[in-house]
């Protein structure tokens, strides 16, 4: 606990942010988020939007895998459901953007509930593998249900339009995505202050005890699946408005692995972990681009970029699992703790 922050009420003790220093930092973050789009160029705005989408999806996966302990390799597939729903609604009904996003979330949630149904009988690794199966089946559906998904060529998505303003640049999409993502993250944080979130953690740690305490396992596992795939669906919908084309190849198994890696690297089971992990994993390819560009190489740098990225990706997963299983958020916390005591350290 930070020095000099005595709590005077239970409400104070349970708050998300609880000291004046934290409020100050939050204010600075808020100002930074508001000011960023005005100082950043197209490239950085593009990245910011991508980061927002990834944070939303990673937070969703974290609820399922980090907090409830149900490993899923299907996050990309659920995003795909969300993306296709949004694309189809936009194309066929022309319904408002926010409604489309909600619809994307709901349809993805239904998918999540179906995939989660076996989770009572099928546990651990077997459940993870069944989510791979779900991904394969969904990919097949995306590629072959021509009437709805447009088959292999997919669907092109018109730019999002709200109140007559067309969101066709990264600058404009930023103002749509960032608030949505912030709401989703706060929602997740709130979840774990209540009995629902606690029940999820209980299921992860010792599901037999959870049952003895009266938590109906199937209902809560389904709830977790539903919630995390809702998040994925909304993130997928945002993805659709961002890239403006949705094809069956847009959401491969590799992307599910990307998100799983993001929460492992960031720190499973913590809200901050999903955020840090998503940011880190999105930035790493960009950082690699820079590094590879600087290196004096005889061959064309761009040729080796892709394989190097793949290797680094795998190495990050292995490295963090072996050396820092608590992830980036643990490193962050250690740095913070150091600075809490900094002037007084011997």
């Amino acid at each position: 606990m930070r020095i000099g922050t005595a709590r005077s009420s239970y409400r104070h003790d349970e708050a998300l942010f609880d000291s004046r220093t934290q409020y100050a930092w939050l204010a600075i973050l808020g100002v930074a988020l508001l000011g960023f789009p005005f100082v950043a160029d197209e490239y950085w705005l593009y990245l910011a939007c991508l980061v927002a989408i990834n944070i939303a999806s990673a937070t969703g996966l974290n609820i399922l895998t980090g907090y409830t302990g149900l490993v899923s390799l299907g996050q990309a597939a659920f995003m795909g459901i969300g993306a296709y729903t949004v694309a189809a609604f936009e194309q066929k009904f022309g319904t408002p953007v926010l409604l489309n996003l909600l619809a994307g979330g709901f349809v993805a949630m239904l998918g999540g509930l179906v995939v989660g149904l076996p989770s009572l009988r099928v546990k651990g690794l077997y459940l993870a593998i069944s989510t791979i199966a779900a991904s394969v089946v969904l990919h097949f559906v995306f590629a072959n249900w021509h009437s709805v998904t447009g088959g292999h060529s997919g669907i092109t998505v018109a730019p999002a339009e709200i109140l007559g303003i067309s969101f066709d640049t990264s600058f404009r999409l930023y103002w749509l995505f960032v608030p949505i993502t912030i709401m989703m993250v706060i929602g997740a944080a709130n979840l774990f202050r209540t009995r629902i979130g606690r029940a999820f953690i209980a299921i992860r740690d010792r599901d037999i005890s959870a049952e003895v305490l009266g938590i109906p396992l199937l209902r809560y596992k389904l709830l977790s699946f539903g919630l995390s795939s809702f998040y994925a669906g909304v993130a997928g919908g945002m993805w659709a408005y961002f890239f403006r084309v949705v094809t069956p190849e847009s959401f491969p198994l590799l992307m599910s692995i990307f998100f799983l890696a993001a929460i492992i690297v960031g720190g499973m089971g913590t809200i901050l972990g999903a955020i840090l992990g998503a940011i880190f994993m999105t930035m790493v390819p960009e950082a690699l681009k820079l590094i590879v560009g600087w290196l004096p190489l005889s061959t064309d740098a761009t040729l080796i970029l892709s394989p190097v990225r793949t290797i680094v990706f795998g190495a990050l997963i292995v490295g963090f699992l072996v050396f820092e299983p608590l992830g980036l958020q643990e490193i962050w916390r250690r740095i913070r703790r150091f600075f809490h005591l900094w002037p007084f350290r011997a």
Partner: peptide
């Protein structure tokens, strides 16, 4: 970890 290893090998 094996997933990570797979990625490294492909790379």
């Amino acid at each position: 970890v094996t997933v990570g290893l797979a990625s490294i090998l492909v790379g």
